[in-house]
Structures are given as C-alpha cells and as structure tokens.
C-alpha cells in the first residue's frame, strides 16, 4: 500500500492502538495491497476514552466490558457486584488498554 495512505491512516487512528502496536500495523499495511483500503478506511474502532468514562460511571454493572465486546467478562462483573467492587476499580485503569487490544484484534483480521 502507498506510504502516504498508510501514514495518513496511522495519524488519524493512532489513539485507538497501543504505541507498540503502531510499528507492526505500519509495516503490515505497507506490505498488503490496495484492495483492503476501502474496508480499512471505513472500519469502526472502540474509543478508549468513552470506555473509560463508562467504566467510571457504570463499571460495577460491567457495561464497559460489554461495550468493548468482552461479553463473558461483562457478565462476570455484573453477577459479582463488579468483582466485589475491586475489579470495577482495577478496570478504571485497565479498560483503555483492553479497548486498544480489542481494536488490534479487529484490525488483525484484515491485515493477516
């Protein structure tokens, strides 16, 4: 793929990924052909900041986990009062990373 397109994608979407993912994504994007560009540019990613806000407001109900697609863990959190309140607090700090990891999984389906 064109280096200009790849850099544009990286610039606009860098907030959705962990810093250490970006290099891999860039290299992989340069290697694949142009036919994937249409899917790639219209992809929807989970917003880490939104998940953090939801986690602070409704983390005890597991809604943050449901939002990023971790349904099983969300149910676990809901059934245990947010993991006795401890897991809910831990997730205030973990949820952004979890959302970015989910985005990486999502983009990997296209890249590989």
């Amino acid at each position: 793929m064109d280096a200009q397109k790849v850099d544009m994608f990286i610039m606009t979407n860098s907030k959705y990924f962990e810093a250490y993912h970006l290099n891999t994504i860039r290299e992989r994007l340069l290697a694949i052909d142009d036919s994937k560009w249409a899917i790639l540019s219209t992809m929807q990613f989970h917003e880490p900041t939104t998940s953090l806000i939801v986690s602070i407001l409704a983390g005890s109900l597991g809604i943050d986990r449901f939002m990023i697609g971790d349904t099983g863990l969300g149910v676990g959190k809901l059934l245990t009062c947010g993991g006795l309140g401890i897991w809910a607090i831990i997730d205030w700090f973990m949820i952004q990373k979890a959302a970015r990891e989910k985005n990486m999984q999502k983009i990997q389906q296209i890249l590989y």
């Binding site: 005890s60 947010g82 309140g85």
Partner: peptide, 18 residues
C-alpha cells in the same frame, strides 16, 4: 459494603444479596 453502588448511592445493585 463490597458493592460500590451500594456504598456510594445507598441503593442495591442488580446482584446485591447474591
């Protein structure tokens, strides 16, 4: 209480009492 919602808002959450 172990439950954050009950401690802060004083109303039970869906799984309180489990």
């Amino acid at each position: 209480h172990a439950c954050l919602i009950k401690t802060i808002m004083n109303i039970p959450c869906p799984s309180c009492g489990a």
